[in-house]
Design a protein around this nucleic acid. Sequence first.
DNA 1: CAATATTTTTAGACAAGTCTAAAAATATAT
DNA 2: ATATATTTTTAGACTTGTCTAAAAATATTG
Lengths: 220, 220
Amino acid sequence: MSYTKTEENYLKAIYGLESKFGKSVSTNKLANKLETKASSVTDMVKKLAKKELITYKKYQGVSLTKCGKEIAINIIRNHRIWEVFLVEKLGYKWDEVHEIAEQLEHIKSEELVDRLDDFLEHPSFDPHGDPIPDKKGNIPTRKEAIQLNELAIGEEGIIVGVKNTNNEFLQYLEEMNLTLGKKIKVEKVFDFDKSKIIKTEKKKVTISKEVSSNLIIEKS
Amino acid sequence: MSYTKTEENYLKAIYGLESKFGKSVSTNKLANKLETKASSVTDMVKKLAKKELITYKKYQGVSLTKCGKEIAINIIRNHRIWEVFLVEKLGYKWDEVHEIAEQLEHIKSEELVDRLDDFLEHPSFDPHGDPIPDKKGNIPTRKEAIQLNELAIGEEGIIVGVKNTNNEFLQYLEEMNLTLGKKIKVEKVFDFDKSKIIKTEKKKVTISKEVSSNLIIEKS
DNA sequence: CAATATTTTTAGACAAGTCTAAAAATATAT
DNA sequence: ATATATTTTTAGACTTGTCTAAAAATATTG
Ligand SMILES: [Mn+2]
Ligand SMILES: [Mn+2]
Ligand SMILES: [Mn+2]
Ligand SMILES: [Mn+2]
């Protein structure tokens, strides 16, 4: 069984919203995420329900079935492996790959992504620090990952991920030298707005609460 | 300006048939090539004509405009570069890549194929010996290429291309050890059916006229 | 709890691309 | 040159995914 690009994008969006909010996904949330109208979502959601990829009760939102979830995770796997390829092999920057991966993730071939995965030597995380599901759908975890937010004065860690993968944010981080793998130390926390002074190997930077809550750190 | 996958496939098909037959392309030929119906072709052809990608006069067939030709060549460039990638980097065999390249050729990104081209070190020919157009649309040529057909007894050459890229034919060639880069010598020609005995480095094989007219050779 | 606001669904329409069946144009054969 | 065959176009319909406007259901609030 193979699905259209649109169906795959709906499933992926449902998966994302389900994970984020931990409950069934409303028509409006989905419409917003997919940049379409609620009425379009209602139509598509009926189709996916008939194919048993989601469960749907009128006015009650949707959630993925086992099968729908498998498909969603597979698309995410494709997306992230392609992102690794684009950065590692073609020299793209981390803020340039998402759009292209959105297209590449829908290429229909059982084998292609597996071969790409071999070629890339089975990466566990993508260029934004997001975990890459394996062929069976298992998603790698990091035991010790916390938000930079939760790091106290004097504590150190390594940047291993970003929560927000918005291009402008990624470019900002690049300029601040706060990219994946960088070692950082909390120098100071301003209580009134929770902004922090962060020491990296090269320089000191001040970041807002907004920024520190979007950086994933492994304590060291 | 960006075009749909369908539009791109029509342009590519028209390009192929125009090159092959050297005249304007009929509705039926196009329908046959694209595995669709003549009525569908008529509809689409009107659309492409309105966009000035082809010229079309009712009952007279179509041909590409300069702009349409540029697009077609670009898609062919994408296709062939992806085929090189699949074979050279992911270890696919030459009979396994066409289908996937049919999908990958439509990925929308000015930059992607250029970067891939750099990564592959600017190949001039794809895994089937077909020339890869450059960014500007220039298509590399081989001065000395002839059909194995035209090689007389005792003459030698190197296989540099196949005219027919049908999977079964490619698999047959693989088994006969008649793949790209192989050195061959014509040992004997049977006049009654123009079949030939060919000596490769490893063994002697007998091939039909059909086969020898589909192999491109550089004399040596 | 009733009035109001918000969310969701329905109804009907549209664009892209395709199809079948029939009509019109062109090509071929007597 | 006329009849026949083939090719091409038109007409009308279908599917997928989308939209707007209006109706129905649910949520919020005084
Ligand atoms: Mn991404
Ligand atoms: Mn990512
Ligand atoms: Mn090909
Ligand atoms: Mn090829």
